[in-house]
Simulated scan of single mutants.
Amino acid sequence: MDFLYVKALHIIFVVTWFAGLFYIVRLFIYQTEAEDKLEPAKSILQTQYKLMSKRLWYIITWPSAILASIFAFWMLYESPYYLSEPWMHIKLSFVLALYFYHGFCQRIYTKLQKDIISYSAFKLRMINEISTILLFAIVFLVTVKSAISWVWGVVGIVLFGVLLMLSIKLYKKIREKNSWDKTEKEVLENNDKN
């Protein structure tokens, strides 16, 4: 098979792998938030989220991770000179971190399938941003290769991560305020009726 076809397939499966990683943690968040619902909504939602998670994880995310890796090894076999490039070593370090993240998500998935909730929805939102940071790091390294300074790249990724975390905290505050406003409004409306 032509090298460019292998590269295209690698990119496609990297995209679907990341899509699965982004969405699986969202499902974890929804399943965790469903814990606060009243029955029967709680059971219905958690059952549905478990089913959605199982299908996403084993039909899209895991196969994409495996196929992205197969095509990556194939490219390295066809063009071993990539392994002599310094940017590739850094990229492979981020890919290794991505595999650890994938394994961490597997642990969360397994626990949630057994109704064991280990993380709050807020912590899961923070965890969800790890894949975003890894995506930015990997794409920038592959795109600009040696043109990027290692130090500036790391500083950029750290700053990006800090901005993401601050955005999540701001989002949480806005959500809590809107939730409080809604609750206060409902109380006032109920008082007016009485």
Rank of each mutant, 00 (worst) to 15 (best):
W87D: 12
T32R: 07
D115F: 07
F100M: 11
W74M: 12
L96N: 07
S79I: 08
C105P: 04
Y49F: 12
F104Q: 05
T110H: 10
L83K: 10
V95R: 09
S64W: 03
P86T: 08
I66D: 05
Q31Y: 00
I70G: 03
L98P: 01
F71D: 01
S43F: 00
L92F: 11
F104L: 13
W62K: 13
M75V: 13
V25K: 04
Y101L: 09
L56E: 03
G103P: 00
Y30G: 02
P86S: 09
Q48K: 14
R26Q: 10
I66E: 05
P63F: 06
A34G: 06
I70L: 15
A65S: 12
K37W: 00
Q113S: 08
I117H: 13
I66L: 15
K111G: 13
K54F: 03
A68T: 12
M88C: 13
L83C: 10
S43Q: 10
T110F: 05
I59R: 12
R107P: 00
E33D: 12
Y30C: 01
Y99I: 15
Y30N: 05
I29K: 08
A34F: 02
S84G: 14
R55H: 08
I29R: 06
W87S: 13
S93G: 15
H102E: 05
Y99G: 12
I44D: 09
K54Q: 08
A65N: 06
Q106W: 11
A68V: 10
I90C: 02
Q113P: 06
R26N: 06
F73A: 14
F28M: 09
T110N: 12
G103W: 06
W57F: 15
S84E: 13
Y77D: 09
K42F: 01
M52A: 14
R26C: 01
Y99C: 11
S64K: 09
F73I: 14
W74V: 01
E78G: 01
